[in-house]
Structure formats: structure tokens, C-alpha cells
Write a protein that binds this DNA or RNA. Structure first.
Length: 501
RNA sequence: GGCGCUAUCGUCUAGGGGUUAGGACGUGAGAUUCUCAAUCUUAAAACCCGGGUUCGAUUCCCGGUAGCGCUACCA
């Protein structure tokens, strides 16, 4: 377990842009922040980074919060719940960023830059051709303050650039150790555009500092930006936080995981019937493992206890859907049956094309779920798994080549005749045990056993030669028939005979 | 082009100067079952390459290679 932070109370944040659905990559970052905050007794803060006005949309903000809540993460401060360092949405904070940038200019830690885009681009091309790093040539850094003031007064547009000190920038990363960048490579970055709009790398630092963030846990795509940010902290005289740059999550083709790879947003997984605790468990395993490396199943509570930020691996991880599904199966089995039944209802509604279901129908579907949920990777597979109970189409069954093969076998007709004759004498509903006994009797009478005995009966009953055990199917069929939602065993026989003869 | 990060079974990972390199998913085989699924057992499967350092490197150092990221008045 971690030492209490030298910064005092741990404060971490998840700072997504509301530009779309929450992706597993971002969700994993959120998770690691949350786990760390909870286990340290710190604060987890949600901040909306909507400075990119073109792409940000309010409706995504709502969805984002719902998705994160679904995963099981809660935040202590955020745009909805407030907190001691508002605002938790960047869009109304622009004056702060401007004032702070100008203050930096007054303190001679930043300067106005009048350089034209074309000039900068030309310089860039030259550097590239000369195999040199692309840097700012420093033209305006040398400008006398009076000169700069005069040109500003004359209405010349100016951006503000931070002065990068003349020494390497070093910072500590919990995942990667010490990282060092040459100051030449960092080069004086723009913090405020000539339009007055602040730049992302500047805004984050202001926000993180104002919100007293102690640990910046984020994706490693920000690693190369970190020296700029460190320089900014130092220029402002703020305490540099601890960093932890998490590796990228890749798709099977080793490319950064994206929609291209299929279902990758939290909403997608929810719609597939993946349980939040399963997703959380799986994502935690992407880049983290407990000491010893065995043990893979961790409830959210256990994760909060066991997780160690120091043990997070720096190398990128490929997202393995199969393993996620395996974990999901585990949690489906472990979960309260009533909860699983309720979560599965929408999938039946869709499969049955029924908006409204009676209480009895829901209860019956709940029994189906209970019977088959442990055989399934995701809840959305249940209607398909239970289709033997849910539907019946004798005609279509006849036409399937693999069924036809069995149906025209020599032993089939005697088996079915005997079977049907016996069932005709049965009282309804037929019990599973009685059903089993009948099959035994048929076996005795006809001398047919094994697949030759079971397959025809199975086709008669379910239209398929493979599927779940009769023990489970028969009671569900009988119960469903009573509710008018399925066909009873006898009804199935009737329909089958009509089609078969 | 420059800079940075990364590199153990197909995948997620444990480990670490001397190990039969461990676990899990997936895959193969077997058991069970009328069958499918589930379940159980079992097998195959890895230290990127080249130099150092060392009695000994997969482990430490350097270089290479590859992947990824950043290199914007994008976020």
C-alpha cells in the first residue's frame, strides 16, 4: 500500500472532453485515478475539458457522467456536484487564463510573440530539411519590452510564449521513473493564442494547480507534453505534481484501440450485457497485476484495497475481448440472479419484439435467464441461447439439411411414433423427471439409444439437434405455454406431426 | 527528420544475475453429456537482435530494430 502523499491529501482528476462516448482507454484512466483516490482516502475530481468548442457538446457531458457512474466510479467534485475550486468546466474560465498569462509576461517569464505563421512554417521546413528538431527560433524573445508594448499598442496581433529555461527539464513519473527532456527540444511554447484563446497545455496546468491536483494520472500520449507543463508550474511558482503516465490500450492489430476495432465505448459494453464490475476488473488488469501475478478476479472493493499505482506497467496492452468475456461470465455467475434477470429483460424484449411484458412473462423470462445465464459470455446472448424455448418453427426445421439427415434415418420414425404415443397419454404439465422416464421407455421399446434416440426427439422439440438439456427445457416450455408465451411439449408434437407427415 | 516511451508464450501478465521462466485468456487433447454450451483434467506455447559488464545474463549497461506517442497559434 502507498505512503500517504507528501502533498497531504491526495487529489486526482479525470478530465475528459465531451466530444463523444467514453472509450475504454479513457475509462481505464478514470478507473486508475479513482482506485488511487479511494485507496488513499483522497478526492476524485471530474473536470470537463470543453475548451475545444467546435467539438464539445453538452449532451455528451451528460452521457459521459452516466457512463462513468455505470462503471461504478463516483466523484467528489465536479460540474454537477460542485466543490471548493470551481468551475469544473473550462469554458467559462477564459479570463483567468488570460490574466495569468499576462502576469507571466509582466514577470518576464513569458513574452509577446508577433511572428507570422508563414515565417514559422518556413523555419519548420528548414529544420526538417536540416535534420534538426523543430523549435521556435526565438525571434521575439529578444524583443525589448517597450518595443513589444509599442507594437501591441499599434494593434499588431500577438501570442504569448512561455520562456523555457536554459537547462534540461526533469520530472518524475510513477510508472516510468525519471524522464528528462532537453530544453532545446521543448522550445518556447505558445500558451495564449493571438486570438486570446489559451492553449490546452497551458489550461490543464492552470486547472490542475488551482484544483490542487497532487497526482496527474493520464494517458502516455501526454508524456511528451509534460516538460512544457513542468516549466509552466515552475514559472508560476506552483508545486509540480507527481505524474503517472499510463500506457496506451491497443487493438488486436496493435493500433491504438478505436471504434474501428468494434465495441469500445462503455455504452457499447453496457448494451452487450457486460457487467460493470467485470469491465472494471478487466480494465484493472490492463497494465496492473498484483504481486505474484496469479489471481485475476477482483471485486471493486478488493481492487481499491489491492491496487498499487507503483506496480502499473509502462508497456502498451492489447485489449482482449475474449478475456473480458471470460471475466464477465464469472461475474454473471457470481451475481444475484434477480439482478441478472432484470438486466437481461431488455434483450428479450428486443428479441421477441415486445415492448410490454406482463409480470408473469417477466418472471418466466427470469427463469429462463437463471437456467442459462452461466452458459453465456454476455447477457445479450441469452435470447439466442434460449431460442429452443422461445420459438418453434417445424417447417424450417425440416428444411435444414443436417436435420433432414437425421429425420430420414431408419430408426427415427419408430422412435418418434413411440414417443408421441406415450406423450399423448400424459397429463400436462409434463415434469422433467417424467419426460426423462418416457425417453427411457421409448429406448426400451424401440431398442434405439444414444444420438439416434435423442436427436430426433430434440429436433421435434426444439427444431435443432443440439442445445440445452431437456431437463431445463421441458419445465420452461410447459410454464411458458401456460402463459401463452411458448409452446408446450404437446403443442410442439402437434405442429411437428403436421409438418412431418 | 528530431525527441521521448516501450519490448517475457498468439494475448494480459508474474518473475528476476544461476528458476523445470509461474499464472490467466485463447488454442489442442481427454473426461462428462443425446448434442451444444458450461464444467473438470491435460498438453503445446515466450524472455526482439547485437555487443559489453560478469564465473554466469532473459534480468544490469550501450547500440540496433520494431511499435507507439509528441513534434501546431489541436485536445
Amino acid at each position: 500500500m502507498q505512503q500517504p502523499s507528501k502533498h497531504g491529501e491526495v487529489r486526482v482528476r479525470f478530465a475528459p472532453s465531451p466530444t463523444g462516448q467514453v472509450h475504454v482507454g479513457n475509462a481505464r484512466t478514470a478507473l486508475f485515478n479513482w482506485l488511487f483516490a479511494r485507496q488513499q482516502g483522497g478526492k476524485f475530481i471530474l473536470r470537463i475539458e470543453d475548451t475545444d468548442l467546435d467539438r464539445s457538446e453538452a449532451r455528451y457531458e451528460t452521457q459521459l457522467m452516466e457512463d462513468v457512474k455505470w462503471l461504478g466510479l463516483d466523484w467528489d467534485e465536479g460540474p454537477d456536484v460542485g466543490g471548493p475550486y470551481p468551475p469544473y468546466r473550462q469554458s467559462d474560465k477564459w479570463q483567468v487564463y488570460r490574466d495569468l498569462a499576462e502576469q507571466l509576461v509582466r514577470e518576464d517569464k513569458a513574452y509577446y510573440c508577433f511572428c507570422k505563421q508563414e515565417d514559422l512554417e518556413r523555419h519548420r521546413q528548414q529544420a526538417l530539411a536540416a535534420h534538426l528538431p523543430v523549435t521556435y527560433p526565438g525571434t521575439c524573445r529578444a524583443l525589448a519590452p517597450e518595443e513589444a508594448a509599442r507594437r501591441r499598442a499599434a494593434g499588431e496581433p500577438a501570442a504569448i510564449r512561455l520562456k523555457i529555461p536554459d537547462r534540461p527539464i526533469r520530472f518524475h513519473d510513477i510508472v516510468r521513473g525519471w524522464v528528462e527532456f532537453s530544453n532545446e527540444v521543448v522550445s518556447d511554447p505558445i500558451i495564449l493564442r493571438s486570438s486570446g484563446v489559451p492553449v490546452y497545455n497551458y489550461v490543464v496546468v492552470v486547472d490542475d494547480a488551482e484544483m490542487k491536483i497532487t497526482h496527474v494520472i493520464r494517458g502516455d500520449d501526454h508524456l511528451s507534453n509534460t516538460p512544457k507543463q513542468v516549466a509552466l508550474y515552475e514559472a508560476m511558482g506552483w508545486t509540480v505534481p507527481e505524474f503517472a503516465h499510463l500506457s496506451t490500450i491497443l487493438g488486436p492489430d496493435k493500433e491504438r484501440l478505436s471504434k474501428r476495432h468494434g465495441a469500445t465505448s462503455l455504452a457499447n459494453f453496457r448494451e452487450m450485457g457486460v457487467l460493470p464490475e467485470a469491465l472494471m476488473n478487466y480494465m484493472a488488469l490492463l497494465g496492473w497485476a498484483p504481486t505474484g501475478g496469479d489471481r485475476e478476479i477482483f471485486s471493486p472493493t478488493e481492487l481499491v484495497q489491492e491496487f498499487e499505482l507503483e506496480r502499473v506497467t509502462p508497456s502498451p496492452a492489447v485489449f482482449d475481448f475474449e478475456k473480458l468475456y471470460w471475466i464477465n461470465r464469472h461475474y454473471i455467475k457470481a451475481a444475484e440472479p434477480a439482478r441478472i434477470a432484470a438486466l437481461t429483460l431488455p434483450f428479450y424484449r428486443k428479441a421477441l419484439a415486445r415492448e410490454e411484458l406482463s409480470t408473469e412473462a417477466e418472471a418466466w423470462l427470469g427463469h429462463i435467464t437463471a437456467a442459462f445465464s452461466h452458459q453465456v459470455n454476455k447477457l445479450d446472448e441469452l435470447p439466442e441461447r434460449a431460442k429452443a424455448v422461445l420459438g418453434y418453427d417445424a417447417k424450417a426445421a425440416m428444411e435444414l439439411p443436417e436435420n433432414a439427415e437425421i429425420l430420414k434415418a431408419e430408426t427415427t420414425r419408430p422412435v418418434l411414433d413411440a414417443f408421441c404415443a406415450k406423450l399423448a397419454a400424459e397429463a400436462e404439465p409434463i415434469e422433467a423427471a417424467r419426460f426423462k422416464a418416457i425417453i427411457k421407455e421409448v429406448q426400451k421399446e424401440t431398442g434405439v439409444k444414444g444420438p439416434a434416440l435423442f436427436h430426433p426427439i430434440r429436433i421435434l422439440l426444439t427444431c435443432a439437434q443440439s442445445g440445452p438439456e431437456f431437463d431445463k427445457l421441458v419445465p420452461l416450455m410447459e410454464e411458458g405455454a401456460k402463459l401463452g408465451l411458448s409452446l408446450s411439449v404437446k403443442q410442439r408434437i402437434e405442429q411437428f406431426r403436421a409438418a412431418f407427415n
